[in-house]
């Protein structure tokens, strides 16, 4: 397993999502070192980065900090898919550039006819 920062952030996030309660750095460290060598400070860095990105909430518990996921995995997926499918249509400063947007049934028919033309042209069936 390659320990890039991205992989570690993903693993730390998985741990926070699966945990019932906010986790201390030690608990996350314990979970992540089950299948790899990892310095305690690295886990601190990873959690710090996640909290700077707004993915993780940090709360004080006595002398230690506890970490919890800001949103559940499902909420995050729903959010991403919502943006991906341009659910927010009136928002014109597009965060992303979609390959193609969905069409109405009428447009779908016209689109299939156009595809048939491309296919004909490719098969040489359509005389020029």
């Amino acid at each position: 397993m390659v320990n890039t920062l991205g992989d570690l952030e993903r693993s730390a996030m998985e741990q926070l999502w699966s945990a019932a309660e906010p986790q201390s750095v030690r608990e996350v460290h314990l979970a992540l070192t089950r299948d790899r060598e990892l310095a305690y400070t690295t886990v601190m860095t990873v959690l710090d980065r996640l909290s700077k990105k707004g993915m993780v909430r940090r709360e004080r518990e006595g002398r230690a900090y506890l970490y919890a996921a800001e949103r559940s995995r499902d909420e995050m997926v729903a959010d991403v898919m919502h943006t991906a499918l341009e659910g927010n249509a009136d928002d014109r400063t597009a965060a992303l550039v979609a390959f193609v947007s969905r069409v109405s049934p009428a447009e779908a028919t016209a689109m299939r006819e156009a595809l048939a033309q491309v296919e004909d042209r490719q098969n040489g069936a359509h005389p020029r």
Partner: peptide, 20 residues
């Protein structure tokens, strides 16, 4: 294929103008 893929309700009404 992708333009004709089914869409969840909340994403309906998005203009697919220009695909044709």
């Amino acid at each position: 294929t992708l333009a004709g893929a089914p869409n969840p309700d909340w994403a309906l009404g998005v203009a697919g103008a220009g695909v044709v």
